[in-house]
Amino acid sequence: MKPAVTFINVSRYFGSVKAVNQVDLAIEEGEFFAMLGPSGSGKTTCLRLIAGFERPTGGEIKILDEPIQDIPPYRRNVNTVFQDYALFPHLSVAENVAYALMIRKVDKKQRLKQAEEALEMVRLGGYGDRRPSQLSGGQRQRVALARALIGKPAVLLLDEPLGALDLKLREEMQEELKQLQRALGITFVFVTHDQSEALSMADRIAVFNEGEIAQIGTPQDIYHRPETEFVANFVGSSNVLPAALVRQMTGRTGIASLRPESIRVVAEGGHTAIVTAKSFLGSATKLSLDLYGAGLNALVDNSFGSVEIGAPIQIDWVNADMHLIEGRNE
């Protein structure tokens, strides 16, 4: 199987700002791939490089093993769902969806029929005559999706596709996007700053930081085995144990990540930590702890009994859950 998108040492500089810096990347065909990172980390620029809205300062970009950095966006078999949806306000919903076909000079009857099919696929059958301004945010997003998918692109790019939706709608759309991707078998590449979205939807995730990829891997890899302190912090707000503490506890060199939910409160025999704050979250309780001078967050179930702020408790975790980040020796 050949990769759908390949980056070979790709850079994009804006003046002295290195938006994307020497990135290597291979996205498999049929994959649901997430680019995760804080704003300004270069993930959106990468998406725009694939679409052709930006041109690389250096390196090579391939789609299906063909170099495409000299191919303008309108010749690339790639379509995009924009963050603000970018629906054409002067066209009806059906005309929006059929836009790509209109440009390809498909005859009017045929293209309206296909547009209606595409709208049905995103459960908006019968909405074709409306204007984009008459639709809700969630509906607009579906129209944008139908419009991008009507030409059956090799790769579908989604720029923060769920960012503008409210929580409930977002969860619904996550499920729907996954089903759609499985049904169509199209490679989806989506950009998000929301780690839970990336973790729940993607087959693989690339975590971006300052124009570079900090780690690529499955959601499980990224979550449980972060390779850098940045990844550990950014994904799931892990605790990062300082090198001194790690050495004291395990004798090994380096810092380590420890997920808040891996920490248990035990009756005895654990490490002694001081409770500095607590907040009840419903299904669990979040404790802020002081462990030998290092701050820790713990997410514990409510069965541990009552703790007082300022009081010492015993905590423990399975050693395998403490993931050593090699090579960092602060």
Binding site: I63, I68, R104, G151, K152, A154
Partner: peptide, 16 residues
């Protein structure tokens, strides 16, 4: 839909 090629995709379309 377009040229029905679901399994065989091209990187570049034959746009005008």
């Amino acid at each position: 839909m377009n040229n029905g090629a679901n399994n065989r995709r091209a990187a570049v379309t034959s746009a005008g």
